[in-house]
Design a protein around this nucleic acid. Sequence first.
DNA 1: TACTTTCTTGAACGATCGCTCAAGTATATA
DNA 2: TATATACTTGAGCGATCGTTCAAGAAAGTA
Lengths: 196, 196
Amino acid sequence: MPRKPAYDKNTLIDRARDLFWKQGWAGTSLKDLERTLGLNPGSFYAAFGSKDKLFELALDRYAQGGTKRLRDLAAEHGALGALQRYPGLVIDGSSTPAKACMLAKTVLELKNQNDQLAARANAHLSNMENLFADLFREAQAAGEVSDRYDADALARRYQSDLLGLRVSAERVGVDAKAIADEIAARLAELAHHEAS
Amino acid sequence: MPRKPAYDKNTLIDRARDLFWKQGWAGTSLKDLERTLGLNPGSFYAAFGSKDKLFELALDRYAQGGTKRLRDLAAEHGALGALQRYPGLVIDGSSTPAKACMLAKTVLELKNQNDQLAARANAHLSNMENLFADLFREAQAAGEVSDRYDADALARRYQSDLLGLRVSAERVGVDAKAIADEIAARLAELAHHEAS
DNA sequence: TACTTTCTTGAACGATCGCTCAAGTATATA
DNA sequence: TATATACTTGAGCGATCGTTCAAGAAAGTA
């Protein structure tokens, strides 16, 4: 009996993610969303409930994409290979709406005015960091990284380096590729057993 | 003949900087500013012209504070000593309205909707990076850092590391002090002449 | 073809946005 | 003390914010 929606919800979430990623929370108005999604207010609220809810979906979708990309990389190039390639990948090409991390942008923008969403973004970042740690452990098991390092500490530092890289990549006049290369090169040195 | 303002403009700019720093551009309404500065709309616009203009002043004030803090550090501890202490300093204490860099926050938030302000923030970041490079060169002249490194490259990487550190410090559940220590420790290694 | 169920449309809501301006108040000079 | 020159006040402007909802259109069942 019913009538089917004229849109594909998954596609709309992708588009919303890209818009939010580029413009941020406050920088994206309902009018922007209606235009980009091709939805009138009524349909928008029937489909997503509120701007907050959609942003939450977009955040989850974003995080899911990041972990998938890294896992794929690990499947193809191994743990260390993936960790080395990832920095270059996230700042590469003009395919993404922004170079900076959407999760980091969200934490910075909303920490002091929307705890809900900021906390969710932060949780996704922690999740990602856990994945980094797993890969470092895997690299250690494979003998690619010395056991003398703490994988969690390496992951923490790697996450911080990535966030810095991606903020730098958002700036104009900064050679982000050079920074990405340095991060990757540093990882290669972790195999050595020299005294620190 | 005239009547003197009831406020000290410099103090107001400091307060505005702290508010903008913490809450960002869109997150700070005129009502917020009026409350924090103790100014009614009329006085506000008489004194500052617009929200944009005040934000610009706040941005400049912020950048000026950063360079001063670093220069003071260099005067007391030397170039390398200053570079090593700075990371710990910027994320330390609860004295600042936020841990993240206001310039970075501004670039991320406004790049796609207020070129004017984003570009100004970016320029301040470049300025800071030049100061880093000068200090690295100074450290090289003092023999604290090997000449085999390019000071500009070191500064670029240092800036990126700092930005990452300060985003990390804004998160909950992250041991930012540990990251700051690692950044400082890495600088100490730059004196060695080992093969890279 | 009639009916039911859902989706779509878009006008309009109250709240807030950044901002203006006329009227009132305080202070320094004369 | 009178006057000129600011500065201060706060009501209220038009625009936009996120959101609601009643009315109309489309599609599956009977």
